[in-house]
Simulated assay, not measured.
Amino acid sequence: MRLSTLVRSSSTVPQSKLSDNTKKCLINGLINGFTLIEVLVVMVILSLLTAMVVPNLSKMVGSLEKDAQLDRIRLILSYIPDLAKSKNNDLVLNPDFELSAVQTGEIYSLPDLPENYHLSLEQNISYLANGFCSGGVVVHSK
């Protein structure tokens, strides 16, 4: 079969306007593009990967959310020694989570805890004006 026959039968573009690369592809029978089977195989692979990844994303987001809330609780508790230093006063955190100054009797409010988190103390925690703390252990529960 001649090139002119291939060009006439496969395209309405005049033979003079075809590039050399296009002519070579027509002569050798090369076709650019993907077959339907190749496209379907790629789509199946992508859908399987998506099916494996999406359920883990929700777990990851939940885990990150929990970590962020625990970090906020740690930040709230790490704020107390700094408050004792800045006020130059010893502070006591009691089991009801009231923070009071030993010398002046002032009561300081703590920032709110994240939703659904609760802290418990078995005994008071003392924060000295130099930032040192002693006493109980803070236990968190959700």
Rank of each mutant, 00 (worst) to 15 (best):
L119T: 04
A68V: 10
L49N: 04
L128D: 02
I76F: 09
L93E: 00
L113E: 00
R2S: 01
S78K: 13
Y127S: 00
S58Y: 15
L119K: 04
R8S: 13
M43D: 06
I125D: 01
S78A: 14
I45C: 03
Y117Q: 02
L26C: 02
M1A: 14
A51F: 01
M1I: 09
D82V: 11
K23W: 11
T12I: 14
K66D: 09
A129I: 13
K24L: 09
D96G: 00
R74K: 10
Q123C: 06
S9K: 14
P95V: 00
I125Y: 01
T104D: 06
L91V: 02
N28K: 14
H118F: 14
D71F: 09
K59F: 15
L3Q: 05
S16K: 02
P55Q: 03
M60I: 06
S120Y: 04
Y79V: 08
L3P: 01
I37K: 04
V41F: 07
E38F: 13
N116W: 05
I27K: 15
M1P: 07
L93G: 00
T5N: 12
V54Y: 11
L128V: 11
V41I: 14
I31H: 07
C25Y: 09
P55T: 02
N130G: 07
K23Q: 05
I73V: 15
S126L: 15
D20R: 11
N56D: 01
A129C: 08
N94K: 10
C25N: 15
G29C: 06
V102S: 07
E65P: 05
G62H: 00
S10N: 10
I76E: 00
P111L: 03
V44A: 15
L49M: 15
I45R: 12
I45M: 15
D112R: 02
N28P: 12
C25E: 15
E122S: 06
S141Q: 03
L93M: 00
T35W: 11
L99I: 12
I80R: 09
V7F: 08
S134I: 05
S9T: 13
E122A: 12
E115W: 00
L26E: 10
V13A: 09
K59S: 03
L40P: 10
I76Y: 09
A68T: 07
T5V: 11
V137I: 11
V61Q: 11
N21R: 13
S11L: 01
Y117K: 14
E65V: 09
G136P: 11
V7D: 10
D90P: 01
A68P: 06
L128T: 07
N56W: 13
V53E: 06
S120Q: 04
S10R: 15
L26D: 07
L113M: 03
N94F: 00
P14Y: 03
N21A: 09
C25S: 14
L30I: 13
F132C: 06
G135R: 07
L119E: 05
H140D: 05
L119H: 06
L121T: 02
M60Y: 15
N21V: 15
V42G: 12
